Computed example of a mutant assay.
Amino acid sequence: MALNYKSRRRLSLLVLLVGLPLYVAASLWVISLFDRPPFLLEIVVYVTLGVLWALPFKAVFKGVGKADPDAPPDDTG
């Protein structure tokens, strides 16, 4: 099911304002359950988690920063 441009913009805003903070809190909570790993391993874990959150939402974020392709052309010239 393809989302239209407006739906993708709203969903991406929801993901960034609600989903991302929840993901960060959950990641920090899970990491805190274990003993502190060596510094380099900890960096690798945080970088990996920082990239993994965006993969499922790649289609939602694609093209959101561009002009609406469904909007009528602007004939103000």
Rank of each mutant, 00 (worst) to 15 (best):
S12Q: 03
A59R: 11
L22F: 08
N4R: 12
L40D: 08
P38T: 02
V24E: 00
I31V: 15
D74Q: 14
G19A: 02
V47G: 04
Y5K: 06
I31S: 04
V45C: 07
F61V: 06
D35T: 04
L22A: 10
P37E: 02
F39V: 08
S27G: 15
P69Q: 07
L17S: 09
L28S: 12
Y46S: 08
P21G: 11
P37T: 07
V30P: 00
S12L: 05
L13W: 03
L40Q: 06
D74C: 06
L28R: 11
F57V: 09
T76H: 11
R8C: 05
G19M: 04
Y23K: 00
V44P: 00
D70Y: 09
I43D: 01
P73I: 06
P21V: 07
L52W: 00
V64E: 03
L49T: 02
K66P: 06
I31T: 02
P37L: 05
A26E: 00
T76I: 10
S27F: 03
L28A: 15
L22R: 07
L16I: 14
D68C: 05
F39G: 01
L22N: 12
L16F: 11
Y23T: 00
D74S: 09
V45I: 12
V47W: 01
G65N: 07
L11T: 09
L17T: 14
A54Q: 09
L22Y: 00
M1T: 09
E42P: 03
Y46L: 13
A67M: 10
W53F: 15
K66N: 13
R8Q: 08
G65F: 10
V15R: 01
A54M: 14
V64I: 07
F61Q: 02
L28M: 14
G19S: 01
V60N: 04
K58T: 15
L14A: 10
P38G: 14
V45Y: 01
L20Q: 03
A2C: 13
L55A: 15
F39W: 08
D75Y: 14
A67R: 10
P69W: 02
L33R: 08
Y5S: 11
V18Q: 06
P21T: 04
D70I: 10
V15P: 00
P38F: 02
G63N: 09
L13A: 10
P21Y: 01
L49K: 04
A2D: 12
L17A: 12
V64P: 03
N4G: 05
R10D: 14
D70N: 15
Y23Q: 02
F61S: 06
K6H: 14
S27D: 08
F34V: 01
V51M: 14
A54W: 15
V47Y: 04
L28V: 13
V64R: 04
F34R: 02
L41A: 09
L28H: 10
I43G: 04
V51A: 10
G50T: 05
K66V: 09
L17W: 11
L52V: 10
V44I: 14
W29S: 01
V15Y: 01
P21F: 06
Y46D: 07
P72D: 05
I43T: 10
Y46V: 14
A59P: 00
M1E: 12
P69A: 02
L28P: 00
P38N: 08
V18K: 02
R10Y: 15
A54V: 08
I43A: 13
D74P: 03
